[in-house]
Amino acid sequence: MDRPYDVWKLSESWRIRFAYFETYGPVPWTLEARQGYRALSFWDRVRLSSNVSAFLFGPMYFFAKGMWRKGLTLLGVVGAVVAAVLLADVGGVIERMAALTVPVVAATTANYAYYLHVAEGSRSWNPLEGVFGRR
């Protein structure tokens, strides 16, 4: 397969992620993909399905990786969530859950978004692009 990127310029973690995404797509929905996912080591599965840096830095992580369109979208979602929580004055548990919404979305979508950005040249504004099945 002719790749538009140099796989050897990627770290080992990114090579594992990219190899999985090239073979199975973003999520293990098919039996073959689930078997491939289970064949990975525990830490490789963790690295594949989440991104700690994206969780901690949210939209800024997307900007740093060159996915500024998706970062701006996430920043807009942050603004909307903050405004909704402030206007609703819900407090307590709901406020904390709302505060985790964007970091969790960023952490679970960043890996596949970066794959699409590097491997397929995606310039989409949608941070959930392709997450619910192949593009």
Rank of each mutant, 00 (worst) to 15 (best):
W8E: 15
K9S: 11
K9A: 12
K9N: 10
L10C: 06
E12F: 09
S13F: 07
W14E: 15
W14A: 14
W14Q: 15
R15L: 05
I16C: 08
I16Y: 08
R17W: 05
F18D: 00
F18L: 00
A19P: 00
Y20I: 01
F21P: 00
F21L: 03
E22K: 04
E22Q: 09
E22W: 03
T23R: 10
T23Q: 11
T23I: 01
T23S: 06
Y24H: 08
Y24Q: 01
G25N: 02
G25C: 03
P26F: 03
V27M: 13
W29P: 00
W29A: 15
T30C: 07
T30I: 05
T30H: 06
L31N: 08
L31E: 14
E32R: 09
E32C: 03
E32D: 12
E32F: 04
A33L: 04
A33C: 07
R34G: 01
R34A: 06
Q35L: 08
Q35F: 04
Y37M: 03
R38K: 10
A39P: 02
A39I: 01
L40M: 14
W43N: 04
V46H: 05
R47F: 03
R47Y: 03
L48K: 00
L48F: 01
L48G: 02
S49E: 09
N51F: 03
S53L: 15
S53Q: 13
F55V: 11
F55N: 07
F55I: 10
L56C: 12
L56T: 08
F57Y: 14
G58I: 11
G58N: 14
P59C: 10
P59F: 10
P59I: 01
Y61I: 06
Y61S: 10
F63S: 03
F63L: 11
K65Q: 12
G66K: 02
M67E: 00
M67A: 04
M67V: 02
W68M: 03
W68A: 05
W68L: 02
W68G: 01
K70T: 04
K70Q: 15
L72V: 13
L72K: 04
T73C: 13
L74E: 02
L75R: 06
L75A: 13
G76F: 11
G76R: 07
G76E: 09
V77W: 11
V78S: 15
A80N: 09
A80I: 12
V81W: 04
V81T: 11
V81L: 11
V82H: 10
A84P: 02
V85P: 02
V85H: 05
L86W: 08
L86D: 08
L87G: 11
L87W: 12
A88H: 05
A88F: 07
A88C: 04
A88K: 09
D89A: 13
D89N: 14
D89C: 09
G91Q: 08
G91E: 09
G92L: 12
E95P: 06
